[in-house]
Design a protein around this nucleic acid. Structure first.
Lengths: 345, 345
DNA sequence: TCAAAAAGTGGAAGCGCTCTCACACCTGTC
DNA sequence: GACAGGTGTGAGAGCGCTTCCACTTTTTGA
């Protein structure tokens, strides 16, 4: 049981004028006091504090935003359908980290979803209208030209993952995907595999391209040159489909690098369905290590994708940019990856 | 290669005044035209449209919001730590559906996370300040008194899941959790189980309490009265822990109802670890059927939790409330559940 | 043909806030 | 005692938009 509540404050919201009147000061002073004011006497501050709490005052964000030109919110742009966003651990990890950092800074997060690769008018209008103080772009696709567009807008923005073009225009944080691909190839080679294929990601995403490039480089370095590539869409079903296609074309495959664990999980299904044992017949290396890899059977050997660190870092850089604490020059940060050995390779 | 872009519009945003000037009309007319204007001549409309596009005009949301008292965004209140939100398929399904409906209506979603059960000052301040036009509350806990607080605020709001108290104060949509618990008990009884336990959810959530109540009712109806209950926290680890505790106390258990599939997955681990076969030694029924159940081994017999439909419905009701299209009287909607039979029972 | 109604328009008043600026009031210091 | 330098304070000017209201123009009906 709780004590009886005090009578409700009037439902129509109090304004700063009301606070000023009750506190017996001017609106200007009330404003200063409310905003953790410098240049406010202790007496005035106390009076305003009291008035705020009796009136249950809460500043009108629109009015404040109108004059400060800040919105205290940042937009997270995700050019993917809802299905993937709330399903793929990559986004879960990213959003989790972002929202944690934003909470520290009393910033709100506005999620801007767009159909795959199509950063629509709506999103762009939103950003152009300065609804948000900055943009964090993740998982963008080649055709959306986001880096250029954001650079044009002049809106503070940071990419999670290398942008397609214009990587010199904008700050970004990325995993060392090339190195990851190379490590995967090496691991498979070290195990003795020689007929190695890969299920790469969509061709319009830099992460896919970079992982593929690294994988090719790794194989080339060992003189294993035949290119066995299929493309998936970073989903379980897509991975399964791509793997089946790959197996049909190259039935003698003995090693497989799959560019995400979700797809690798599909790949395991395909391998099982076609009567292949992992890792005895075909060794598999995934990518991400975000909770999926440890629960497949067999558990996946994979590459760590430090998405939480990336998102954390990216968000902090964005906040600095917004606050004008960082130089305008675009920065790139590349996070290391590492092989996590389990049972599939 | 694309054609050369036209020279950039001035980076300082155009205002409605600029549009009016360029279009050769008054600001009032420009405003009407921009807002899909009634009472605007075709000529004026065309002139404004042209001006808007040459100036690349986008209305300042803060200014608009200041006068209309709308924000065109709705708050989704989730009193859970980020970890659960972006990890539990329950939230994934909910957020997915919500964001889909909001997109239809050109509304933005603002995610308000709060530590478990503690709907903080921050959230409340946000809502009181009318940062959002309405609130959708999900997964709330007993102590937060959200229903009362929102009713006091007079902010349009809808609950996903029955609120603790004040269910007469606020509109909500819920799954028929009691019926679900009953069905689970029946399924286990029908299989011949007689020493049936349950891993319930947290005691401060209505979904947990309702499922437990239904389960008890189902057992009571069959005259099986012994109460074997442990509580988990809707996570895999929590489910495993609770199951171990339950098994320690009741080693002869032959049936188990686990109040979420995530916890059930933990329960399967515990059963396997203690050398019990599912369903031969212990039959298991889960709850949710949101993608987890089909991938456990054995796949879980479970109860369908129509979260997408719930969230969809709840969001639409909220929008109606905001638009004043629904009567003020709180409504309750209860969605049916059903047993999905797989291999664990 | 003319009055009445309808349609379109612009002036101007705010929405609630921040912040510049001018002013009043205190210290100290020579 | 006069002056410089603080430190608080309040008046007031907007931020960019919507909308009321009064007005002019056009359309309509008898």
């Amino acid at each position: 049981m709780r004590p009886v509540e005090p009578p409700d404050p009037p439902s129509t919201n109090a304004t700063l004028d009301d606070v000023a009147r009750v506190a017996g000061v001017s609106r200007a002073t009330a404003s200063r006091a409310v905003n953790g004011g410098a240049k406010v006497s202790a007496r005035a501050q106390a009076a305003v504090d009291a008035a705020v709490s009796t009136l249950n005052y809460s500043p009108n964000p629109a009015a404040r935003s109108l004059v400060t030109r800040r919105t205290d919110s940042i937009a997270v742009v995700v050019p993917e359908p809802e299905d993937r966003v709330f399903t793929d651990p990559f986004f879960a990890g990213t959003l989790r980290a972002v929202s944690r950092v934003l909470a520290e800074h009393e910033l709100q997060m506005v999620l801007l979803l767009a159909p795959r690769g199509a950063v629509g008018d709506r999103t762009l209008r939103y950003l152009r209208g300065r609804h948000a103080d900055g943009a964090l772009v993740t998982s963008h696709h080649r055709q959306d030209r986001m880096a250029h567009r954001l650079a044009e807008l002049g809106l503070p923005s940071v990419f999670c993952g290398r942008p397609w073009s214009g990587s010199n225009l904008v700050t970004y944080v990325d995993t060392d995907n090339v190195e990851g691909g190379r490590l995967a190839a090496e691991a498979l080679l070290a195990r003795g595999c020689r007929r190695i294929g890969t299920v790469a990601g969509p061709e319009d995403m830099t992460a896919s391209v970079d992982r593929l490039e690294g994988w090719r480089a790794g194989l080339a370095a060992a003189g294993v040159l035949r290119d066995r590539v299929a493309h998936g869409d970073f989903t379980v079903a897509g991975g399964e489909r791509a793997t089946r296609a790959l197996l049909e074309e190259h039935p003698d495959l003995d090693g497989l690098f799959v560019a995400s664990d979700l797809m690798a999980s599909g790949a395991l299904n395909a391998l099982r369905a076609t009567g292949r044992r992992v890792p005895q017949d075909v060794a598999v290396v995934g990518f991400d290590d975000l909770g999926v890899a440890e629960h497949t059977s067999p558990p996946l050997t994979t590459l760590r994708n430090p998405v939480a660190e990336m998102a954390d870092q990216a968000t902090r850089m964005l906040i600095q940019q917004i606050r004008g604490q960082s130089s305008a020059a675009p920065v790139r940060v590349v996070m290391p990856t590492a092989l996590v050995v389990r049972e599939s390779c």
